[in-house]
Every structure is written in C-alpha cells, then in structure tokens.
Design a protein around this nucleic acid. Structure first.
Lengths: 253, 253
DNA sequence: CGCCATGTTGAAAATATTCAAAGACCGTGG
DNA sequence: CCACGGTCTTTGAATATTTTCAACATGGCG
C-alpha cells in the first residue's frame, strides 16, 4: 500500500542524511502523513520550509527511536510502520502509553528530557523535526502551530480515554474496546474488517494494564462467542461490530 | 493565604460580570495564578491584553463548571479552590482524570465539545478565557502560545504517569504515590507536611481506579505502619516520606 | 442533640494473576 | 525441503488481590 510512496520519499535521503529541499518537499507531497497535524495546514509551496527542517529516519523492527531520559531535541512524525511509546520501571513492569501509526506525531516534551521510550514494532520510517526549528516553523506558519496544538490536544484526550479504560473497565471490556479502536485507527488491515496486528499479546497486555494470559483468554472468549474470527494469532476479523461494542460496554462514553 | 488576593480580584467583578481592564489587570498582578502557564510569560503591561479577554467566575462547592458534551468555548485557569475533571459513563462508573489546584488550566478541546466534566470540590474561583480570544492572544504574544503549549505538554505527561499507575501499580502503591504527588502539588496544607484533603475517599478511589473501601484500607495500613498520621479523615501528616516512597514502589520511574 | 453523609472494618465473592505445560508459528540452517 | 530452536500463544489450575456486601463508627451541621 505505501510501497511506491515511501520509495519516492527515500530518493536521495538514505538513513540519517541531511535535508535536501527539493526532494524532501517532493517526499512531503506524496507522504502518507501529508495531511497530518503538523504538515496538514500547509500548501505544497509552504511545505518546503518544513521539508528543509526535517529528515527521514529508517527504523528496523525492535529499534529504539527515543530513550527514556534522553534530552528532548526532536519531534517525530510517523510516515510508515508502527511504533510503541512506553514507560518501564526497573522492576520489570511496563505500561504502553500508545501505539503509533502513520500520521501520528510523538515527542512532546514538557521538560528537558523525554519521559518514555519509543520503539519500532515493525520496520518503520519517521520524519524528524528539530525542536528549535519546529518552534520557528510554528512561529512563522500559524497552520503548523495550530496543527501541533490540536494534535497535542487529541493525544491528551486519547490519554484520558485510556485512563477511563485502565481505571474502570473490566478485562473483557478493555480488549473489546481495544479492537474497536484499532479498527477505527490507521492500524494495518489485510482486508476491510480484518486487522493485521503489529503487536504481540504482551504488548496488548502492557497497553491495557493486564497480563498476556488475560488478554489471550479474552480473545478466545470473544472468538468463542462468534464475534471475531482469528485466522491467525495476528489477524482479527471483526464479524459482529455491534456485539463487540456491547462487549466493550460502550454504554455512554 | 489567598484571602486578600482573591478579595482584590473581585473588586468590581462580581460573578459573571464582564471584563473591566484596569481592575482586571490589577487582579492579574496579584493573582495566585500570575506565574502560571498562560499568564506567566507576560509582564504587567502586556497582561492587560489578557485581562481584557478574561473574567472571573465564582463557584460554590459541588457546582459544575464544564459539562461533558458541551461546546468547548472556553479555557479556564484555576485561581482559588480545588476542582476535579472526570469522565462518567451512564452505568455509574466514573474515572477522575485530574484534581485541579490554583494555577492549573483546564479546557483543552481536541474537537468541538468537551469530553469530561469539571466540578468544584470546594468553593473556588476560575478565570475564564474565550477560546477565540485566547487564540488571538497566542498569535499576538508568543509567550502565551509557549505557555499554553508547555502547560498542555505537562498535562499529557501527567496523564502518562497516571496511566502507569492505573495499569501497573498495586492499590497500596497508588495510594502512597498519590499522597506524595499531593504533597508536591498545590494541594492545600494545614502545616508543612500535613495535607488538607479537599476530596473524599470516593474521589480518591475514582482517581486511582479503586473502590473507596480499598482506599480506606490502604490509608489505615499506611497509618498502622507509622508512615502517616490521620488527625482527621481529611488531614494527612506524612511522618516518614522515605518509607512512603518505598510503599509507592518508586523504584525507577 | 440527632441526623446524614462520610469513613472504617470484616467476611465472602469475583476478577485477574501467577505458575505451569503444551501447542502453533516462523525463520534458519542443514 | 524438512527439522530444529526459539518465540509467541493458548489453556488449565491454584493463588492473590481487589471488590462487593454489610454493619458499624465518626463527625460536621442544622
């Protein structure tokens, strides 16, 4: 689906090489994240400014983009693949804060350092913006400022929904709601109605505040009820969205 | 502590009356939120712009400032008292997202409507900014823009910490960490080291994703261990902060 | 002084976790 | 091409934590 697009995006911009205005702005024009928060408000001429302040980074599955505690110098827009943002404590516990798909941005520092890790779940590509340059861009282009603001607000809202799920939903409800959220998101799909999960049961558990066994049991249960089908462990076909909503307990929220 | 301050703030600005530049800017100068995100970057001359676009609202304990689903027209800065932001589902479950003390702002809409309630826990006062005027102010004063941005980022970070607590901490750890957070916050104190809780056990439970009984048991347990003292149900004296940190399991996060 | 909301404590029940074992899947190398 | 090893997933049974239900205590306020 994004093969030719990302192919173009990489012309003359291998790995961490510096910006290259003409090709970069071309890359922007065809970028899967072209309509995303930061880039969305600019026209194809204005976007050159943005392209000049950014460059692409290729990530292999498992690679870490952001380390907890690192000095926060960049903000990234995901252009391909899936990443996860997580907090880990040194006793081994982990809480995944969000799964990041194409179009989302990450790296909103409140202080001098990042307070979470970001790792690639699959092969991925991100567009890197230097914070200082990005702030200049925001000052120059109100559309960038506004996009950044509304993107941050959306992330805050999503964090609030997540808090409700973690604090007040049962295991079954969390898993059902998770599948519905994925369906509505930019999560890869094999066909419409069939999700191709880029994350493991452990990842899902760490996102939902459960154990991997509990997640697996919930999947099995929902399958047994005939609400989903599992062609493979990574593929989820939602056969009955209405009943899935009922399982998610989406009664007024 | 804020008696004379809020007294001054109310000169000629009773209830929901309109802005009154001179007195308002005076109110700003002595406002407890003078150094907060939105107002903090401006000098006493520039702040008149802000004062002209804002007005004070008095709230009684229990009053609702924001209704879930309302059109998001305002952003508020808390100038006195304590509020709570929460999501409620119509089956009676509730998740408190944050307790708001003086200096914090609330009402960052990602869409057209608010997605949570905000209610006053105590008698309170907030400063209301019309969203449209606030956006003009952000365009005009980079300091306001920056303050809003960093305030939002801080809220996002706090939401992430909360997600870790809700997803991965035990009941005991959540309660212990909650007390430490309160101690570090603008939560009212009777004396240094003694918190004056403006919220009930039920509120704490709904914030921590627990039941009120579990919260009560955790308080009792921590008291029995000699780590806190409870002069009354609403007062918590932290006798041994180090052991409280240990109970919070703050081992690397 | 007494009422009503708030808080505490106990015992039983429910939910999710932990520990354990076995099965499925994937990629690699023989 | 198939066997092998490792990772991921599923499922079961025992255990732990938290919730639920219930009763009683406390305390602020009319």
């Amino acid at each position: 689906m994004g093969a030719s697009i990302s192919g173009l995006g990489r012309i003359g911009v291998r790995g961490e090489s510096g910006p290259h205005p003409v090709f970069e702005s071309l890359a922007c024009v065809t970028c899967p994240a072209r309509k995303s928060d930061i880039c969305g408000g600019l026209d194809n001429l204005e976007i050159r400014d943005l392209a000049a302040g950014s460059n692409r980074i290729q990530l292999k599955a498992g690679e870490t983009l952001i380390w907890d505690g690192d000095v926060a110098q960049n903000t990234y827009v995901v252009t391909r693949g899936t990443l996860r943002a997580a907090k880990a404590s040194d006793d081994g516990r982990r809480q995944i804060l969000d799964f990041l798909f194409a179009g989302q941005f990450i790296g909103i520092p409140s202080g001098a350092t990042y307070q979470f890790n970001v790792e690639a779940l699959t092969e991925a590509e991100v567009c890197r913006f230097d914070r200082r340059k990005l702030e200049e861009l925001m000052a120059k282009h109100p559309a960038v400022d506004k996009g950044y603001r509304s993107g941050t607000a959306r992330q805050l809202e999503s964090a609030y929904d997540h808090a409700y799920a973690l604090g007040r939903r049962t295991a079954m409800e969390r898993v059902a709601a998770f599948l519905l959220d994925l369906q509505a998101s930019a999560c890869p799909k094999s066909t419409v109605g069939t999700l191709k999960l880029p994350m493991t049961r452990t990842d899902i558990a760490d996102f939902l505040g459960l154990t991997l066994e509990t997640v697996s049991r919930a999947f099995s249960r929902i399958k047994t009820l005939g609400v989903i089908r599992l062609p493979s462990a990574q593929e989820v076909e939602i056969k009955d969205p209405e009943r899935l909503k009922a399982l998610a307990g989406t009664g007024g929220l």
